[in-house]
Design a protein around this nucleic acid. Structure first.
Lengths: 133, 133
DNA sequence: CCTTGACTTGGAGTCGACTCCAGGTGGTAC
DNA sequence: GTACCACCTGGAGTCGACTCCAAGTCAAGG
């Protein structure tokens, strides 16, 4: 699969895919005779995983470390698990922050909602209905 | 309240507080005779709000726009509400992404957990218990 | 008086993560 | 055979959000 297809399929620009390869987040992708990248199933699995993790804000460095361990085989399973657990905790913490902010936002929106209603009511009472339409 | 106190109280560095003021996220803070910032109750309320919003990833620009509207008085209530609603939706979307990633992470951690257990079981069966301690 | 320490300023530097570009190649379509 | 298109490379630029720094001011303590 060529870079443009992978790009379209996963909503990642070719530039970003090449960038990921340059910095070692994706291992060197196999090329055809013309030197053009041909992404394997496995490469694509990796891209999907990366996209998922990045969409939640996991840092690229962490992912590089993780894949480095994967490459070193079974004896790194424990270390990999620890990385994932740590990122899981960080993710949860961020989600809790966001939930708090969401609550604040919801509250403020409601307050504004009421403010708007009150203003309209006032206008109606003053017989200035035309202004609210 | 001086900058150091605000900083300690809210876990924001003085540099960041001054930066926020420079870019207009916080309005010019009142100074004492010596030219030293003296944060008012209202300033601090604003800092708290900013901290909350920033911790959920709302962009600084959006917050500047929002406070710009606040400054313009009641006639901007509707517009402010719209900004908050939009940010609420974006926040929710990000939280959904994160929940998905969390699920993937949990699943992978479980797989690793099982892999570790299996490995230990194998070692026990091979009478190499010492290696797992 | 002099040092110390917290503050001030404007400007430059950093960091993570892309994003863009110039110049070049290779394969297909007319 | 040449125009076109997608691809390639290395390197530079951008963006958001800080973060750091040099040089200066001021109040309080010894």
């Amino acid at each position: 699969m060529k870079i443009a297809e992978v790009s379209e399929l996963h909503g990642i620009t070719p530039d970003t895919l090449r960038y990921y390869e340059r910095i070692g987040l994706i291992p060197p992708v196999h090329r055809n005779e013309g030197g053009i990248r041909d992404y394997s199933e496995l490469d694509i699995k990796r891209v999907e995983f990366i996209k998922c993790m990045r969409s939640a804000g996991l840092p690229i460095e962490v992912l590089i470390d993780y894949f480095g361990l994967v490459q070193q085989g079974d004896r790194t399973i424990e270390a990999r698990k620890e990385i994932l657990k740590e990122q899981r905790e960080l993710l949860l913490a961020r989600m809790r922050d966001m939930q708090e902010t969401l609550d604040v936002l919801d509250h403020k929106i409601e307050v504004y909602e009421n403010a708007v209603l009150k203003k309209e009511k006032d206008l109606v009472q003053e017989n200035r209905v035309s202004e609210i339409l």
